[in-house]
Design a binder for these strands. Structure first.
Length: 903
RNA sequence: GGGCGCUUAGCUCAGUUGGUUAGAGCGUCUGAUUUACACUCAGAAGGUCAAAGGUUCGACUCCUUUAGCGCCCACCA
């Protein structure tokens, strides 16, 4: 006999081991089956899993298990991400505790430390993924730093370079002075801060007056090379061409005219710092201005900043302001909120500065003829008549616009398009050490160098010598690639690309990409970009975006707030099944969700309910034949009939929901079906004598199958105890609905049990309202009308469930029948012991009920009386409304009669 | 500055092509220890579906406007 409470921690690990050893997770290339593939978003190899991972694992496991049971060849490919900056920062923090820096350690030693750290956290992560019950194919586990994946990274880089899509350019980039690296545009987080707007006078040469410019970053003036005004500006256009003196630097700069300047913004005169502002950089290009970078890699003022050299940018700001004040050039300080960019990994304020970096050109038409968007996007895009080819941006937009890729929820299409359409060239080089080294070498000047030696050598393999001069003195580019460059290849690099492997051919494109909406741009967009380019395929057919898990108050979970819930701790306490349900039921795609312990506890209770229902069923002996589990046993009673019909409907609906990714609704439906229909009614009914043990077992077995994707552990455990089950539940076939013919098997009245439930509930209500001791057995007279047969067949059940000592069924109630013809099906109940029923109370209740119903009837009459309704509404609806009205009228008539009898 | 989401019972949330007397869990109240389960059972109370207009025979559901909250994007000196 099983214990009366399910203790998850006793079973889960052993069950997982069984699954793993059975090979159930392993997918094979099998042309006879349809593949269903999910690439697991690889967790960063930095530490431990959080609830965001847990919800991802829960949803994906549900999808995978469902498809596997439906007969698909289901591959769920797990892995981890080296997470360049994130990991490097973490390890830098760790070694800082030993008083070390990466520079002190040196590149190779530092990387060794990172590798060690990553290996540890990968172990932790693998373990935790298992704890969640994830049925992923460990034999195919990948890491963004695996040899094969490195090769894919290099291959793409070289191809893109050869296609002219990767170039090196001197540009304004986002620079994090703490990470000492560039960042892509979307790796900068903008935050509104309350700052100051400083108005500074730049005097004309030899004059006291000049133009006042306004800035939020006065320290950048050290690198100013012009002041710009709008050429249409009546106030200032006369000054264009005039020379001014840049204060503090005593340098001559010119007033220029540029239409970029907005006359209404600020003072209408703009200081131009080409080296530290993207707009100014563009203006500078137009006017061939000098670009003077005044800060070093740590954002300290460099040798171009005169006496401020060596000062941190913020100290320099204070000093500059102090000096300007002394010179009476600081005319006004206005407080002004403005947004400031921060590094998404360390929150340091980002400094825009000029630098030589590698970029991906997202607008250039791709020459390579092999690169075309997948059908049907191809034909439509070609219709556009573009002068040959598509840019990366075009490709990425087309595949979503044309429906090759479907995003759930679809409102994110708009977000995606907006981002993609405004995407600028992607800076992919990073100055950190932890990452894929850029496959570019430079010839380091030997004596016999020729001009061509300056060309970078872009190569799949380490080159032996300079192709131009033959020198063997080569130096590899120091930089590494943006982490999203490699993870952008995830769906196909993990399947063997660029080799044409069987896996790649069979499992790619993948079916679903399930992840949080917060990485739509970082990752989803990049995957679409890179995959359509590299393979001419989409990376995935469906994108399912889940929301963030928040705390009880709706706040983000974070370490600093200390409001995080550790999934592993919750698993220990309540079981992985309970945790999974708590994150999946009530959670809809794209929306955030709150989670707290009581919620998890609630689902633990559900698991326990399932456990105990199963204990009950196990106590009912049944004859079983192995392998016969797909056959529906013959129902022996109305209750059997009833539960089988319900079950059939549940199978259909759950299947539909899961295919539509309505996971929450599927789960909710199963929750209600098990608890209310199966436990509260069918199990209670089946304590009688007529019920079929075979049906009882069959229904439980089917529930276990249906619930298995949601709560794999407890269902697998019960499955093992259930007689007549073959093998592991994880491999069981998904059930088909029984079909409508089934209902006709018995004596005609398929809804007898609905009537029984109605009657029993009614009697219980009346007991409670009349304060009749629930233990006391009472006698009841029932006017059953057309339900007579159904109730007589189930008389024993009614008596047991309603705790009756006597039940008298009356078939015809002459008075009522005459009054309202034969239209209503309502049952009249008398509890014939006046002493216990409070007549006054009952009268009051009836009157209230009648008033309510009459209001309802009035509404319905109005609706039916409306000529428009009869004309326009579908026939079924009109019929339905009419029926409702008749039923309600019947009820009222009976209640009035009851009321009269009470007098 | 642009875009998006949310607002449904005291709390947390469902409600997928407009047709229910608007649902669930938790909480509250009243009771219960009847051979699966107190991680339980029975019953009850509780909502003008944010507000105002509009479309429609019919609106929680579609449209417009407004308010509050939240999120994303943006090269606003």
């Amino acid at each position: 006999m099983l214990p009366s409470a399910y203790e998850s921690q006793k079973y889960e690990d052993a069950i997982y081991k069984k699954w793993e050893q059975s090979g159930a997770f392993r997918a094979k290339v099998n042309p006879k089956k349809k593949p269903f593939t999910i690439s697991m978003p690889p967790p960063n190899a930095t530490g431990t899993l959080h609830l965001g991972h847990a919800v991802m694992l829960a949803i994906e496991d549900i999808l995978i298990r469902h498809r596997r049971m439906k007969g698909y060849e289901a591959l769920w490919l797990p892995g981890t991400d080296h997470a360049a900056i994130a990991t490097q920062n973490k390890v830098e923090k760790l070694i800082a505790e030993e008083g070390l820096t990466r520079q002190k350690l040196g590149r190779e030693n530092f990387l060794d430390r990172v590798r060690e750290y990553v290996a540890d956290s990968q172990d932790v992560i693998r373990n935790q993924i298992r704890k969640m019950g994830s049925s992923c194919d460990w034999s195919r586990e990948r890491y963004t730093f695996d040899d094969d994946l490195n090769k894919a990274v290099t291959e793409i880089f070289v191809r893109m370079y050869e296609d002219g899509l990767i170039y090196r350019g001197y540009r304004i980039v986002n620079w994090c002075p703490r990470c000492k690296s560039t960042l892509a545009d979307d790796e900068v987080e903008h935050e509104e801060i309350e700052g100051n707007f400083y108005h500074i006078l730049y005097p004309f040469k030899g004059e006291k007056n000049g133009l006042i410019v306004a800035t939020t970053r006065p320290e950048t003036m050290l690198g100013d090379t012009a002041v710009a005004v709008n050429p249409k500006d009546k106030r200032f256009k006369k000054y264009i061409g005039k020379t001014m003196i840049l204060p503090l630097m005593k340098k001559e700069i010119m007033v220029i005219g540029d239409s970029y300047v907005d006359m209404k913004t600020g003072t209408g005169a703009l200081k131009v710092t080409p080296a530290h502002d993207p707009n100014d950089f563009e203006i500078g290009k137009r006017h061939k201005l000098e670009v003077i970078r005044v800060m070093d890699d740590e954002a300290r003022i460099n040798e171009h900043g005169g006496k401020y050299k060596g000062l941190d940018r913020f100290t320099a700001r204070d000093e500059v302001l102090k000096d300007l004040k002394k010179l009476k050039l600081l005319k006004k300080i206005e407080s002004r909120p403005h947004s400031v960019g921060h590094c998404y990994r360390c929150s340091t304020i980002v400094e825009p500065l000029t630098s030589d970096q590698w970029f991906i050109d997202v607008n250039k038409k791709i020459k390579n003829k092999k690169t075309r968007p997948p059908e049907p996007a191809l034909s439509r895009a070609e219709g556009k008549g573009d002068q040959g080819g598509f840019s990366l941006k075009d490709l990425a937009i087309h595949v979503v616009k044309n429906g090759n890729i479907k995003i759930i929820p679809d409102r994110f299409n708009k977000t995606y398009f907006h981002w993609m359409e405004n995407l600028r060239d992607w800076c992919i080089s990073r100055q950190i050490w932890w990452g894929h080294r850029i496959p570019v070498w430079y010839c380091v000047g030997d004596d016999h160098c020729v001009p061509d030696c300056k060309k970078p050598i872009v190569s799949r393999d380490t080159p032996k010598k300079c192709p131009a001069c033959g020198s063997k003195n080569l130096r590899q580019d120091e930089d590494t690639l943006d982490t999203w460059f490699s993870s952008g290849l995830w769906t196909f690099s993990t399947l063997g690309w660029p080799k044409e492997t069987a896996d790649l051919k069979y499992f790619h494109p993948t079916s679903v990409m399930e992840t949080g909406y917060d990485i739509l741009f970082f990752w989803i967009a990049r995957m679409i970009l890179m995959t359509t380019y590299a393979t001419g395929q989409i990376p995935f057919e469906t994108v399912y975006l889940h929301g963030l898990i928040r705390d009880r108050e709706g706040r983000k979970m974070s370490k600093s707030l200390g409001n995080g819930i550790d999934p592993i701790e919750m698993i220990k306490k309540y079981g992985a099944d309970a945790l999974r349900l708590s994150m999946v039921i009530g959670n809809t795609p794209g929306n955030d969700m709150r989670l707290y312990e009581e919620k998890i506890q609630g689902y633990r209770n559900f698991i326990n309910k399932l456990w105990n229902a199963s204990r009950f069923v196990l106590g009912v002996p049944v004859e079983t034949r192995h392998g016969a589990s797909t056959q529906t046993p013959k129902p022996l009673s109305d209750a059997d009939e009833w539960i089988l019909e319900k079950l059939s409907r549940v199978i259909t609906t759950v299947g539909k929901h899961l295919e539509n990714y309505a996971i929450s609704e599927a789960g909710q439906l199963l929750y209600d079906f098990l608890w209310s229909d199966f436990c509260d009614w069918y199990l209670e009914l089946s304590k009688g004598e007529k019920q079929s043990p075979a049906v009882l077992h069959h229904v439980l077995k089917t529930i276990l199958i249906l619930l298995h994707p949601f709560v794999p552990f407890v269902t697998e455990e019960i499955w093992a105890h259930l007689p007549g089950t073959d093998g592991l539940l994880i491999n069981a076939p998904w059930p088909a609905p029984v079909g409508p013919r089934h209902g006709a098997a018995l004596s005609g009245d398929g809804h007898a049990i609905d009537t029984v439930i109605g009657v029993v509930t009614k009697i219980r209500q009346m007991r409670a309202e009349n304060k009749i001791d629930p233990v006391k057995k009472i006698t009841v007279v029932l006017h059953a009308h057309s339900h007579f047969k159904a109730l007589r067949r189930n008389q024993a059940e009614v008596m047991r469930l309603a705790r009756l000592s006597e039940l008298t069924l009356v078939e015809k109630d002459a008075k009522v029948a005459n009054a309202t013809a034969d239209t209503h099906e309502t049952i009249k109940i008398f509890i014939p012991f006046a002493g216990l029923v409070d007549a006054g109370q009952e009268r009051e209740r009836l009157q209230k009920e009648i008033a309510k119903l009459e209001g309802y009837i009035a509404g319905l009459s109005k609706k039916l009386g409306n000529p428009g309704f009869a004309q326009n509404a579908p026939k079924e609806i009109v019929e339905l409304e009419r029926k409702k009205q008749q039923e309600a009228e019947g009820k009222v008539a009976k209640m009035i009669e009851q009321l009269n009898q009470l007098k």
